[in-house]
């Protein structure tokens, strides 16, 4: 059973008489709660909001209902600066439904002084290959958001983040 199949080979192309195709596609409607609703309302207005822990003062962007370190509910909203620092990033070379043409760059970005990072795309970097990308993008690279013209209260109201022009 050690054969390495090419990823393009479909499963029903092999031993087809033993296969029973079925589809598991269910609709869900997630309750997002007040925190996320309010954050997305801010996104529509090109504002980035964070929520603060009453005990340790940590700010969370995206908002968290609970500061798990202190195990208390966060209570104070703040609008944060539209400035981020790259914590890590990776270029994805595989195609994925609903996402940009590969390669695209996904990054963990610390927005303002948030305790947690936001996952988002980074664009606006020209690179030929992975080695060149690694030369141009680093942990600590400063980035700023590029907003979509049409916004609908969604994390992708920011199209992507780009390195800040120095």
């Amino acid at each position: 059973m050690a054969d390495e199949l090419d990823p393009s080979v479909q499963t029903d192309a092999i031993n087809a008489e033993y296969k029973y195709p079925f589809h598991w596609d269910l609709d869900f409607s997630l309750n997002i709660g007040e925190d996320n609703r309010k954050f997305f309302e801010g996104m529509e207005e090109k504002r980035i909001l964070g929520k603060k822990c009453p005990d340790c003062g940590a700010t969370f962007v995206p908002p968290q209902a609970v500061c798990v370190e202190c195990y208390v509910e966060t209570d104070e909203w703040v609008e944060v600066e539209q400035h981020g620092v790259v914590e890590s990033y990776t270029a994805c070379f595989f195609e994925f439904e609903g996402l940009p043409e590969p390669p695209y760059i996904t990054a963990a970005i610390r927005v303002a002084d948030s305790d947690i990072c936001m996952l988002h795309f980074i664009d606006g970097i020209e690179y030929e290959d992975h080695d060149e990308l690694v030369e141009k993008l680093h942990k600590g690279t400063e980035v700023e958001p590029v907003w979509a013209d049409e916004r609908e209260g969604h994390i992708r109201d920011i199209k992507h983040w780009e390195p800040v022009e120095k």
Binding site: L30, N31, I32, G33, E34, D35, N36, Q64, A65, V66, E73
Partner: peptide
Amino acid sequence: STQSKEEQAF
């Protein structure tokens, strides 16, 4: 229901 799963769990 409007509450998130985090809120109900917490």
